[in-house]
Design a protein around this nucleic acid. Structure first.
Lengths: 344, 344
DNA sequence: ATAATATGCGTATACGTATACCCTATGGTC
DNA sequence: GACCATAGGGTATACGTATACGCATATTAT
């Protein structure tokens, strides 16, 4: 049981000083109940004095648990590679916070993963599980998700809940949010409501928002006009183009519900350039409540998602899945933030 | 040399199939030149067929190199914990990209670290080095930096280059950028130029920008008026307050140079509420070129920093330091982006 | 031809921790 | 007082890789 203290302290050094064996040190520090209170206290004291920290690699190697999660972004490739959807960024904060709270480290990557990103983080024992974020081309990565399931990888993703049943999903109540937006527009007297955002199953979340809008319109006795829907991905440029296309169309409209704030902001620019007055001529609602939504003129009415709750729920669900605990799909409520763009 | 293939393949499995010893597999996959081309090719083929990946923990434990960097944020605590300075976020993209390119993983944390964050990532062998980002209270963490140096921890930080000589710093040419901004304001005929941003040594970057502004003014024969400087931290609220204080002061001004875009945006709101016309009554320049700078009205003239270069340089410098290669402090050029807020 | 190198690879072992298993002393049970 | 359970902690070993060393065989120098 010899061996004097050396450079970076190990559990052996502590054991030596405490007059016990190395395994006892390990047990004491990990809270095993087969160590007496006195011994534990002594070991903890020495550990503190030596500034001892458990070697993450050795610990992970032995226990096969890394206490690390990986966060992967799937985004449409943007011209500027360093651009990240502001919406996801605000989620980042709550995820890191939640991980820290649970004693987990967080690995992060924005890379457009090649074919075997699934291998990269789980098989090589870098992380215990994966969080997937992204608006990216949805169909394209479904097969990869299936692969993940097949390999027994633990993962959760943010998106449209219960869309395909692959793995675990956490998301906002997009349909409900769409209904709120639609109801508000109807309430302020709008009847020809356009929707900007992909309504196909390539973007389930956008589709859900459109579904909610339509539901609200029908509840008010309005029948949604398909001619007033335009595809758009979540970017200002795409919103600008979609709004121009709408303006060029024959169908008139007095309101727009955009599937994201970036789309809305692009659309507002197109409308302003066309000489339309907001919100008098066209009321507009966005989605996400990004910081810029308060800077536009008029300020943008939008749907705020519960970012803090999202981070918590994602990490929560993933850890449950890792620990083999049962876990239910959960949907987060969203809230309509009324600003000038719908104030008439 | 026995042992048949098992569940998750290890280097032993490959060795068994290739008819060589485990160390040879390790050597082959790591590119050692003491393995024949034929043997190497065979081993690589088998590894591919088995979907083999090196176990990160075992590898790190043995080699004492994690091939992982840690990114830590120091921010002023904000009411909303999940808010992150948009400026740093745009750097995040280029850092992750650079890490991936070099084969490094990236650990991330936004936590207001307690007293011993320095220990947390290096001593426990989670990462080979640390990248520090933040506008936070500068003096407050100087002692911690010294501690890092003392412990032999590898780290780089973003900030004002050559301010204190502690560790390695990468940053923009803040003085030069301040000069550009000042020169531009002088060029459009402004002479009473106010500065919003802490000019003390609590915020060396802001101080540098102020220094540059003063230098440009003096070059034009204008003597900077200390009464036109107001402290502000990088937030909209702080900028708003600073501008109000300025308006309440007796000294008149026809231009503002704000130390960050968030400050500028807050100031613009205060000016607009005071009934001033931008840029006719007051021209304004920000710093950072955050996305919102194009959304304000008028759109905001600002200084764009080289984010991509920043990420590359930070990672570059850190890796050099880790590898014991010599590394020089480097400064990145910044560029003035002229928009409506200075268009007269 | 013989000694000196180099090439290619096997043997042994270390990295630091966590856990299965075993042993000893104590206390309680009848 | 023999018997068994329990607490407390030691012994041995595994996790999967990387590297120091040694030992053949092949190559070159002399």
């Amino acid at each position: 049981m010899g061996r004097p203290p050396s450079a970076k302290p190990t559990s052996f050094d502590i054991a030596y000083l405490a007059g016990v064996s190395q395994p006892t040190v390990s047990r004491a520090l990990r809270g095993s109940k087969s160590v007496s209170a006195a011994t534990r206290a002594n070991i903890e004291r020495i550990a503190r004095e030596l500034n001892y920290t458990v070697d993450k690699n050795a610990s992970s190697l032995r226990s096969q648990r890394t206490h690390t999660l990986a966060l992967l972004f799937f985004e449409d490739p943007t011209p500027d590679e360093s651009m990240i959807n502001p919406f996801f960024l605000s989620m980042l904060g709550s995820i890191t916070r939640e991980c820290a709270l649970r004693g987990y480290d967080l690995l992060i990557s924005f890379q457009q993963m090649h074919n075997d990103w699934h291998v990269a983080y789980q098989d090589s024992h870098r992380s215990d599980g994966i969080i997937l974020l992204g608006y990216g081309d949805y169909q394209l990565y479904l097969t990869k998700l299936e692969h993940l399931v097949e390999m027994g990888t633990n993962f959760v993703r943010w998106g449209s809940v219960s869309d395909d049943g692959i793995g675990l999903t956490v998301g906002s109540d997009n349909v409900g949010a769409g209904e709120q937006a639609g109801a508000h527009l109807v309430e302020i007297g709008r009847r020809a409501i356009a929707f900007l955002g992909d309504a196909s199953d390539h973007a389930p979340e956008f589709q859900d928002r459109y579904t909610g809008l339509c539901r609200a319109m029908r509840a008010a006795g309005i029948s949604p006009d398909p001619a007033l829907q335009r595809d758009a991905v979540s970017s200002e440029a795409s919103g600008y183009a979609a709004a121009q296309s709408l303006l060029a169309g024959r169908a008139s409209f007095d309101a727009i519900f955009a599937a994201s704030d970036l789309i809305a902001i692009g659309a507002m620019r197109a409308l302003a350039e066309a000489g339309l007055k907001l919100p008098q001529d066209v009321a507009i609602i966005g989605f996400d409540d990004i910081p810029a939504a308060t800077l536009t003129s008029p300020t943008l009415t939008t749907v705020m998602q519960d970012m803090k709750g999202a981070g918590t729920l994602l990490v929560d669900a993933l850890l449950a899945s890792i620990d083999g605990r049962p876990v239910e799909q959960r949907v987060l409520p969203a809230r309509l933030i009324k600003r000038q763009s719908t104030a008439v």
